[in-house]
Design a protein around this nucleic acid. Structure first.
Length: 491
RNA sequence: GGUCUCUUGGCCGAGUGGCUAGGCACCGGUCUGCAAAACCGCCUACAGCAGUUCGAAUCUGCUAGAGACCUCCA
């Protein structure tokens, strides 16, 4: 492990050298999707960002346990008291079992992730499968004195917690600000303070998804699953917790409060947050209804899309921006990504055409190190890509005769492109979207036979026979008909 | 309203005190029967104003604009 990775820690608002809690091992938790709808472009961002990190950490030699949860319970529709579980609501609309809805969208999510070449995490725990752990977690917070029960629900006592700890240390808030920004839509008499958050919610009669607990039949609060499952699979201390910036507050802030309350200490060393994808300058999100699903990108079936964009184009597009910057979606930007990616892929294919010279006018080792430097600098994928384009340029210049490369550098060039393009950035070759090989080859055969017809008309028997003989040799059976031809492949 | 962030060339997007990425598009050239690709070259930007400095896209202040969070959200 000669490379020194630095990552931006949201907790301290600065880049820090990454030092794992247990040498050689990394525990990493990332907030996954709520599976009550199709994944959209915004979901691809954290998946790809932390896939990049996962791949790079593994390349550096760490044994990584990567946990990405599936939220399938507990998110409330509107404000905490009147809302009903999002998944339960959707289920009733579609007259399906809640878990049927979960399974349906989870399958589709996995399919999209696979298309994007996002590696599966080590563990993908479901919130619904960890109700017991969550109840135990609430008990611990209760025992520590940071929770109170109210009408069958349990809330976190933020005011009390804040007397001994800083509630808001991650998001840069303080409790006074939160008091001043009380929302008009509150009306939550159960809570002592508007900023208290639910640990356990009593379910009303209409609520389908419910579990028994010491307090009521109900469901866990939505910050709880990450604390409980993170602790279960990664321990009381682990290295990295990631997610979208929009989860910073309140979700991750509450997680910290929960773990400090339950365990007496924080459990995460590095908090990482990816920025949002915007559309017309606005965040792409469910609530705004301005999202484009991944399937729509892959098929081009959306009014805002000028064409279909392949999964690798989407992946490359996301990697062309740094994960902490916003990325604005536009057809021009995606088309630029598509063309740029093609250029890289073609250059990689052109490696086969290179022949080594005794002398080299290019040196690959410094270029390779620059790619490492960029990755080490808080996963600066745009810089890595710029150096990949430099590598592509070298390949093309050697072919054009403007540069020469020796065998050693050529081998290193190939290894470097494979390492960074395929292993670390996770790009892969893909068939052109919508193309059908067999159909295209068939049309080419038709064209040859058309040419043969013309040759026959011109009594150019040499050309006509040459085409027929050559095709027969290749395994085609040609039959002349009264006004044309037929062919089939006899294999 | 509170807290925070951002504003880079036609478009996307790095860069955080001097060496001024990269991609896409455009334009000129080489190559080519023509084209495409490739190669060579061109375009040299940092919202505005003021300040700090030998020197600022980069630091400070103000102004303008945009966005995020404060409510489920990747």
């Amino acid at each position: 492990m000669t490379q020194k990775l630095t990552i931006y820690n949201t907790l301290h608002r600065k880049k820090e050298e990454f030092v794992p809690y247990h040498p050689g091992h990394v525990g990493m938790y990332v907030c996954g999707p709520t599976v009550y709808g199709d994944g959209h472009l915004g979901h691809a961002r954290p998946a790809i960002t932390f896939d990049l990190l996962f791949r790079y950490l593994q390349h550096l030699g760490y044994k990584v346990r990567y946990v990405r949860n599936i939220t399938d319970v507990g998110h409330l529709e509107n404000d905490a008291d009147q809302g009903e579980d999002k998944i339960a609501k959707k289920a009733r609309l579609e007259e399906l079992e809640p878990m049927e809805v979960v399974q349906y969208y989870l399958n589709r999510y996995h399919k999209a992730m696979e298309a994007l070449n996002v590696l599966p995490p080590s563990i993908e725990p479901h919130a619904s499968g960890h109700i017991i752990e969550q109840i135990e977690y609430v008990k611990k917070i209760e025992e520590a004195g940071y929770a109170y029960e109210s009408n069958g629900s349990v809330y976190f006592d933020v005011e009390k917690y804040n007397k001994e700890h800083h509630y808001g240390k991650l998001s840069g808030r303080n409790i006074e600000d939160l008091l001043n920004t009380t929302r008009a839509l509150d009306g939550q008499q159960e809570k002592r303070n508007s900023f208290d958050f639910a640990l356990w919610k009593k379910a009303d009669d209409a609520h389908i998804m419910r579990w028994p607990s010491p307090w009521s039949d109900g469901f866990p609060g939505w910050h709880l699953e990450c604390s409980a499952m993170g602790q279960k699979y990664l321990g009381e201390h682990f290295d990295i917790h990631g997610g979208g910036m929009d989860l910073l507050f309140p979700h991750h802030e509450c997680e910290i409060a929960q773990s400090v309350a339950a365990q007496g200490h924080e459990c995460v060393n590095y908090w990482m947050h990816n920025n949002m994808i915007t559309i017309n300058g606005q965040k792409m999100g469910k609530s705004l209804g301005n999202f484009i699903t991944l399937d729509e990108f892959f098929t081009g079936n959306h009014e805002s899309l000028a064409q279909a964009y392949s999964p690798m184009t989407i992946r490359f597009f996301i990697l062309m921006a740094h994960y902490r910057s916003t990325v604005d979606f536009s057809n021009e930007a995606l088309q630029a990504a598509e063309k740029g990616l093609n250029r890289l892929m073609e250059a990689y294919s052109n490696l086969d055409k290179l022949t080594a010279s005794p002398n080299s006018t290019v040196e690959i080792a410094p270029l390779r190190q620059k790619m490492y430097d960029a990755m080490n600098d808080d996963l600066n994928s745009p810089i890595v890509i710029s150096h990949l384009f430099e590598a592509a340029s070298i390949i093309n210049r050697v072919i054009a005769g403007n540069d020469t490369i020796d065998a050693e550098n050529l081998a290193l060039l190939r290894a470097t492109m494979e390492l960074f393009m395929f292993d670390i950035l996770g790009l892969k070759k893909e068939e052109k979207a919508g193309s059908n090989n067999e159909e295209a080859y068939g049309e080419a055969v038709n064209m040859l036979l058309q040419l043969r017809m013309q040759a026959k008309a011109n009594k150019d028997w040499a050309t006509s026979d040459m085409i027929r003989n050559k095709l027969t040799e290749l395994g085609f059976v040609i039959k002349d008909t009264k006004d044309g031809f037929e062919w089939k492949l006899d294999k």
